[in-house]
């Protein structure tokens, strides 16, 4: 139990550090790299939550498959939304 609490505490601290990194990155002149750095930090946060808080590291194949399905749906949503945002200027360009 103690080990589990320490583990959760460490992940929580890691999430806070990543949050701080997000805030700092938002205020630094990083140019075109800025969104990609933000995405990388967000990915790391999500991975920590999935792997530790949601205990995916202990789950069987079906639970992991369900998690992957959710990820696929998220990718579908973001990809098709991006098809709008990334091509809005094409006609005028």
């Amino acid at each position: 139990m103690k080990g589990l609490l320490i583990q959760l505490g460490l992940v929580w601290v890691a999430l806070l550090i990543l949050l701080a990194a997000t805030v700092i990155a938002a205020h630094l002149p990083l140019g075109a790299a800025k969104p990609w750095i933000s995405y990388a930090i967000a990915f790391a946060k999500a991975a920590l939550i999935l792997w530790v808080f949601m205990e995916m590291r202990k789950e069987g194949a079906i639970a992991r498959l369900a998690m992957m399905a959710a990820m696929v749906w998220l990718i579908m949503m973001m990809t098709l939304s991006a098809s709008d945002y990334l091509t809005r200027g094409w006609l005028s360009g």
């Binding site: 709008d84 091509t87 094409w90």
Partner: peptide
């Protein structure tokens, strides 16, 4: 919305 996205 972008015309290209609309076509898709």
């Amino acid at each position: 919305q972008s015309l290209y996205a609309s076509a898709v």
